[in-house]
Design a binder for these strands. Structure first.
Lengths: 243, 243
DNA sequence: CGGAAGATTGACGAATTTCAAGCAAAGTGG
DNA sequence: CCACTTTGCTTGAAATTCGTCAATCTTCCG
């Protein structure tokens, strides 16, 4: 179902860019003409690095996260197929968070230095890039609001709905459930909760038949009630409304 | 000191754009050839609106915030001179947060529909815009990490340092203090704390001679200790490193 | 002077973290 | 195929942070 192709990248002409050249950051890898396969656990982009590559996710899932000075970790985002990663390094020169593969991932690769050329030659693609950044900003704004104002139950309800909708839109839903191959620790780190508390809240959600997350799959029992709890302003951002 | 001029906008040719045309959103206003003055309390951009204007702040301060369905408010950001507001509406078609003036503000105005033209004709400016979006994303990422992982004391220490550094860089520091004309409620809403708890934490910071915020001015007593508490990865994002 | 907005304080309780332990599943090497 | 280890999940109890409520105080302003 998940038929994300290279031509779906925000930079649709990515096949024009040269395939790939190793870095010390990316460990295990296999090539396929402009594509890259990364195994579970691979750190695709490292905080503080200025990686020469940017990626579009074709397949698999990952995590965007920051490591704090005291060792704790904040997950900023779950990375799904279709996501674009590395824009920050692309324009700011340095990543301010890391990205790691949680399952095996297939990625579309292109070079950072081509960005400038892209701005000059294909304004539509440049516009797409800015659009990507704005959507990212919108999402993070919601995340800030969630972390700042909501209880554990509300946070999880919000996250589950967002995730379910997103994966459904990607065609990854079997109708009753979507794949969600993360650990409870990952969700806890994303929502600013302790694993213990996250675990207990998940249990309550399950008892109430609202949502169940087992064996790496998430299924929602009662969308309506979950939305009520999660207080989510639903409508997803429209696709490139202006141009 | 704060000598932000129209030519400092990310869109430096803003004087090319037509001055201004009313909307129902902006209440009290005065013109000055492409500039706009907004009084304290004016809502510059409203969540859900697709305002036809974007702004660069020349003078004054404001707040970016989201109002949640349950009525609570999350402040996303303090808005300072030099900030660019409205990009989200510009590329996504709709604001997902509001922006309000907290002091009288002077703004540089231009029209949303000129964005596309800008992408086509001046790739440097388009690149700047994307850079602005990436910086915004970086900041929100830090905010998420702070709200998710840190205690009240740590959050305030982090915020105070960021704010001080920023205003200092803008030349607004007298050497010992910077202007910070917000309410405790605003800071609390930004950091996801109750006013009461914020207030008590501020008091402790003052007792410990770490920082004092009185009469609309913030002064830092002990940068080193504050940085230790706030765990802030200091170095500000470089200015347009790639191009 | 009176009123309004914002700051401050104490008491109390709820939400959440931390600590500590036990359990289950999956992988690993012999 | 079986210990053995590792990783992740689950649970209870104690400690702490933080929010809510309610009252008071201060400052500013007409």
């Amino acid at each position: 179902m998940a038929d994300i192709r290279c031509t779906d990248c925000p930079l649709r002409k990515c096949d024009l860019f040269v395939p790939f050249s190793d870095t010390e950051i990316i460990a295990q890898q296999r090539f396929k003409s402009g594509e890259l396969t990364a195994d579970r656990g691979t750190v695709l982009l490292m905080e503080g690095s200025s990686s020469p590559q940017l990626f579009t996710v074709l397949e698999g899932m990952g995590l965007r996260y920051k490591t704090l000075e005291d060792g704790s970790r904040q997950v900023l985002n779950f990375v799904f197929p279709g996501d674009f990663i590395g824009l920050q390094a692309g324009v700011m020169g340095e990543m301010r968070h890391s990205v790691e593969a949680v399952t095996r991932m297939r990625l579309c690769v292109f070079r950072r230095q081509d960005i400038w050329q892209l701005f000059r030659e294909t304004p539509e693609r440049a516009y797409d890039l800015t659009w990507v950044a704005a959507v990212e900003e919108h999402f993070l704004g919601e995340a800030v609001a969630t972390l700042g104002q909501r209880s554990a139950m509300e946070r999880i309800a919000w996250a589950f709905l967002r995730i379910f909708r997103r994966l459904e839109a990607l065609g990854l839903s079997t109708g009753t459930s979507v794949p969600l191959p993360f650990r409870q620790q990952d969700l806890a780190d994303a929502l600013g909760l302790s694993v213990v508390h996250a675990n207990k809240t998940l249990k309550r959600l399950e008892e109430r038949q609202l949502a169940s997350w087992r064996g790496g799959r998430l299924s929602i029992g009662d969308f309506k009630e979950l939305a009520r709890i999660g207080l989510t302003d639903d409508e997803p951002p429209a696709k490139r409304p202006l141009m």
